[in-house]
């Protein structure tokens, strides 16, 4: 069974206490419809498990089939440097059907971020290496598509519907 090779650490984007009994890691692609499907499910899981769950999101853009996935991932990383990773992560998923560079710029503006600075960052690939680091770590850990979830470091090979994930997390939490 595939194991997470890169433990969740300070460079990750995570929500929930670092000493939570369960850590859920998602390798995701902002343009992937399955990740879009998983987005509200993860939110519901976070609500359900509260402080028992830490959630980390890592980038795994499938660039060849999703032409905007890389730009979206870099936009979220750009927002992260202004302390707004999760706001951006959320609005991108909520608008994933209409992704474009134009749209990403609008989202930045909506979050009171500098649209021009984002354009420059995307143009120069300022966050490309950050995204690639997530991607490479994911490949090494056996990420096999998007989304791929890891629960306490073990790859979750089942479906990612609410019921299934709730059960896996409950078990990991020792409930």
């Amino acid at each position: 069974m595939a194991k997470l090779k890169v433990p969740v650490g300070p460079t990750d984007h995570s929500q929930g206490p670092s000493d939570a009994p369960v850590t859920l890691v998602e390798y995701g692609d902002y343009e992937c419809p399955h990740c879009g499907h998983a987005y509200p499910i993860v939110k519901a899981l976070q609500k359900r498990f509260g402080k028992q769950l830490r959630f980390a999101f890592r980038n795994f853009p499938l660039r060849e089939i999703h032409p905007h996935a890389e730009a979206a991932a870099e936009t979220a990383e750009f927002a992260a440097t202004h302390g707004k990773f999760w706001e951006m992560h959320d609005v991108i998923f909520e608008n994933q059907n209409s992704l474009s560079e134009e749209m990403l710029g609008e989202l930045a503006q909506r979050l009171a971020l500098d649209r021009q600075a984002l354009r420059e960052a995307l143009g120069s690939g300022a966050f490309a290496e950050r995204v690639q680091r997530d991607f490479s770590g994911g490949v090494r850990s056996g990420v096999n598509g998007t989304p791929t979830f890891f629960v306490n470091g073990m790859r979750h090979d089942g479906d990612f519907e609410m019921e299934t994930l709730r059960e896996v997390i409950s078990t990991a939490a020792g409930q």
Binding site: D29, C32, P33, H34, L62, R63, E64, I65, H66, F135, S136, V139, V143, N144, G145, T146, T148
Partner: peptide, 16 residues
């Protein structure tokens, strides 16, 4: 019928 099928994944990992 999935985005992240095996060949699509390998296509992304090709540089490695």
């Amino acid at each position: 019928p999935v985005c992240g099928d095996q060949m699509a994944l390998y296509n992304e990992v090709l540089p490695e």
